[in-house]
């Protein structure tokens, strides 16, 4: 390995990242399982699996099915709940040499605010990523992320109860994602992350039943990258806050595509399921790419689409 020259650091809405590669929510649990298999000190950070006010058991199996160049999941926000997270998961996360973004969700506007308020006393949380867009769990029918008004209401509730950077995670399952992005920024989001999974379905023809216990699930993996890229490009032009690119990032080249499209950083998700060290390998390849091409600061590539 030659001498490393490039500066991969990114200032993401005030959060100082060593490099622009984070592990996505729901694909690294709360970090502990990955400790023997990857090195958090070489990542930009990680985003926890979504925490809800109450513990959740999640959806009945089957929860996973592989699809062409992707997979569907129907986990159903299984999580220990806020109280157990603060007591058990957070102390272990706080020990990691990494920026930890905590992903939160609620089922009413008030719950979003309560989640933010309850975490405010915990030292060391880099930012809150607000899951207003999980397609797996019904919140009185609609989900918050599909309408500008409800998306904004959830974000405003979080905004009013935290001093930390607030990242609104957006769903692609909408007509105009830029409209939702503008609404959450107007409501006080410091950044947006996108995309969450696309609603999808798999059917067992022999049994004429849905494959997944939750009937529909969320599609992720390389199959959704072109969709994610187009949406990141669109949103980056619509808002003046940093954008986190998510959706099928498997290689450094994928990450660079998102940065060129306008993302300041990216999250690696499904790729970690096949290769638990995928994030670190992408970081290494980003160094190699920048060094080979004489790029001093990776930040200079953000939004550089001609």
């Amino acid at each position: 390995m030659g001498q490393r020259m490039a500066d991969l650091s990114i200032d993401f809405a005030g959060v100082q990242l060593r490099n622009p590669v984070l592990l996505a929510s729901g694909t690294c649990n709360y970090g502990q399982e990955l400790l023997p298999l990857t090195d958090f000190a070489r990542l930009g950070g990680l985003v926890t699996k979504t925490i809800t006010p109450q513990p959740r058991g999640g959806n009945p199996p089957q929860r996973i099915v592989e699809t062409p160049a992707g997979m569907l999941n129907s986990i159903g926000l299984q999580n220990p709940g806020l109280e157990a997270f603060v007591e058990k998961q957070w102390p272990l996360l706080a020990d990691l040499d990494a920026q930890v973004v905590v992903n939160i969700a609620g089922f009413t506007v008030e719950e979003f605010g309560q989640m933010a308020a309850s975490l405010e006393a915990l030292a060391g949380i880099a930012a809150l990523e607000v899951n207003i867009s999980c397609p797996n769990v019904e919140a009185g029918g609609d989900n918050f992320a599909t309408r500008p008004q409800t998306a904004a209401a959830a974000i405003a509730a979080v905004r009013s109860r935290t001093q930390r950077p607030v990242i609104a995670k957006l769903t692609p399952n909408v007509t105009d994602i830029a409209e939702i992005a503008r609404a959450v920024v107007d409501a006080g989001a410091d950044a947006v992350s996108l995309i969450n999974t696309l609603v999808g379905m798999a059917i067992d023809v022999e049994q004429r039943r849905p494959v997944l216990g939750g009937i529909t699930g969320g599609l992720s993996g390389p199959a959704i990258k072109p969709v994610a890229l187009a949406m990141v490009w669109k949103v980056a032009q619509a808002v003046d806050v940093p954008v986190m690119g998510i959706g099928g990032i498997t290689s450094a080249r994928d990450a660079l595509e998102f940065m060129v499209a306008g993302a300041s950083a990216g999250q690696v998700g499904t790729a970690s399921f096949a290769n638990p060290n995928a994030g670190v390998e992408i970081v290494e390849d980003l160094y190699a790419y920048c060094d080979e091409r004489g790029i001093d600061r990776i930040a200079s590539l953000v939004g550089s689409l001609r």
Binding site: T27, N29, P60, P276
Partner: peptide
């Protein structure tokens, strides 16, 4: 999906 406890899929 993962076999290492991070996807919480094999419930």
């Amino acid at each position: 999906a993962c076999g290492i406890g991070i996807c919480v899929g094999c419930a």
